[in-house]
Design a protein around this nucleic acid. Structure first.
Length: 286
DNA sequence: GCGACAG
DNA sequence: ATCTTGTCGC
């Protein structure tokens, strides 16, 4: 699999206490600062097509190289950072019990999809809050491995630093690959928003600070943000997203990146596409 | 003992 | 996450 930190890859036979120990090691190996030049403006996505009619084809790199593409305004930047959105769907057995995880990775560059990849792996442990990475991590890493592109940024569906041991799914994946990563969760796992999050206007954000549930950080430490990515003018009922650093990104840059990747829907485009592709991959595998 | 908990 | 059609509101 060629991971940057194979030593931190979990063994399937780990006990719960050993998994928690490993998460503390992963959090210690993680950095929650910007050690790179990922400018939100260079990864921004504009178009937000409805996915009801299916996913758009990946942009053909070969055609680009041959210069056969035609039409004005069709110039893409081949040197723009590659952003990969990742999401999962699950296969169930006869008794409708979760059986395998189907991970989908969709790579974007300069606003367009350049590649789709997926992988199906057996589920080893049940869902346990705080241990999600041990259930879905291998599947995600396998899907990323099948990508020809080497993403400059990973957008994961779940928490990063907003986690009991500051080692959520996004941190886990980011550290094992040593890639910048951001966690985007639809629900708050732990921590406390600075302000109430109800009925906020689009674009609003507030820090999420560590509370007693975060055992590895001083209470009050900023570990992420609540971010209102979408809101309707009249009826106020969209919940905010909970954005946190995975690895090699600060809490501030993490929200800025997610804001730049949102293009009219609640979820950032890479996540929305990965969600759709996970369903497609699930149907084809089943 | 009670509460609380990503996907 | 998953089982699932229509439906209420912009």
């Amino acid at each position: 699999m060629d991971l940057a930190r194979p030593d931190l890859r979990p063994d399937p036979s780990l006990s719960r206490a050993e998994m928690e120990d490993l998460q503390r090691d992963i959090a210690a190996a993680a950095t929650f600062d910007d050690d790179h030049a990922l400018d939100p403006a260079t990864v921004a996505i504009d178009g937000a097509p409805p996915l009801a009619d299916g996913l758009p084809p990946a942009r053909d790199g070969a055609q680009e190289r041959l210069g056969t593409e035609s039409g004005a305004g069709d110039d893409h930047d081949p040197d723009a950072p590659v952003v990969a959105g990742i999401d999962q769907a699950f296969l169930t057995d006869r008794d409708d019990a979760p059986d395998a995880a189907v991970s989908a990775a969709v790579a974007f560059r300069d606003g367009d999809v350049i590649e789709y990849a997926s992988a199906t792996t057996p589920l080893s442990i049940p869902y346990v809050p705080g241990l999600l990475a041990f259930r879905e991590g291998d599947s995600i890493l396998a899907a990323l491995d099948r990508l020809d592109a080497d993403p400059d940024l990973l957008i994961c569906d779940g928490s990063g630093r907003i986690h009991f041991r500051e080692a959520g799914l996004a941190t886990h994946v980011g550290v094992l690959r040593d890639a910048p990563s951001v966690g985007v969760a639809k629900n708050l796992l732990c921590g406390e928003p600075d302000e109430p999050t109800d009925e906020r206007p689009e674009g609003w954000q507030t820090p999420v600070r560590a509370d007693g549930a975060v055992t590895t950080a001083e209470p009050g430490t900023a570990i992420g943000h609540a971010f209102q990515s979408r809101q309707y003018p009249t009826s106020r009922r969209v919940n905010p997203l909970y954005v946190s650093p995975g690895h090699r990104v600060s809490a501030e840059t993490a929200v800025d990146l997610v804001a730049a990747l949102c293009a009219g829907y609640k979820l950032p485009e890479p996540t929305r596409f990965a969600d759709g592709y996970a369903d497609t991959a699930k149907r084809n595998a089943d």
